[in-house]
């Protein structure tokens, strides 16, 4: 119950979710990825992408256990931004809850899955 309250209420401030590693942007949501939080993740990611120099994206889900269809919108929207420049997207840290949503939405067809950020970086660079 304590976890529930912490996850849903206390953490609901907009914390940084993105970091750049070379030409790869790692998007790592830190709280329940719903419509509310999706707005700030989307803005932060787009600030990086629109400045240029971002080729690929990694969605790191290791810090969340909840995502709804708003998360699908965030992924698809960012995917459309990089795919036309020849970029790719990958994901890592996918837990059971997030996996269910991603697979129901068919996102594993466009986004390869890796255990962690390191493996995803290697995979994207080698074009695997």
């Amino acid at each position: 119950m304590k976890d529930l309250i912490r996850d849903s209420v206390v953490k609901r401030q907009d914390t940084g979710s993105c970091r750049r590693i070379g030409t790869v942007l790692v998007i790592c949501p830190t709280q329940d990825l719903d419509h509310h939080y999706a707005l700030s993740v989307r803005k932060e990611a787009d600030d990086y992408i629109d400045r240029g120099q971002i080729e690929h994206l990694i969605f790191d889900f290791s810090r969340i256990t909840f995502m709804d269809s708003s998360g699908i919108g965030v992924i698809m929207g960012r995917y459309k931004k990089v795919i036309f420049q020849g970029g790719n997207i990958a994901c890592c840290g996918v837990g059971k809850e997030v996996e269910r949503i991603l697979s129901l939405a068919g996102l594993f067809r466009i986004m390869k899955r890796y255990p962690g950020v390191e493996e995803a970086l290697t995979g994207l660079k080698e074009g695997r």
Binding site: D7, V9, R12, D34, H35, K96
Partner: peptide
């Protein structure tokens, strides 16, 4: 939109009484 998390939390607390699986 801030209340989305609150609605989920209340629901989860209510449902917990029925002893659901995590899924």
């Amino acid at each position: 939109s801030q209340n989305e998390g609150f609605a989920r939390m209340v629901t989860a607390a209510f449902v917990s009484g029925l002893n659901p699986t995590l899924e």
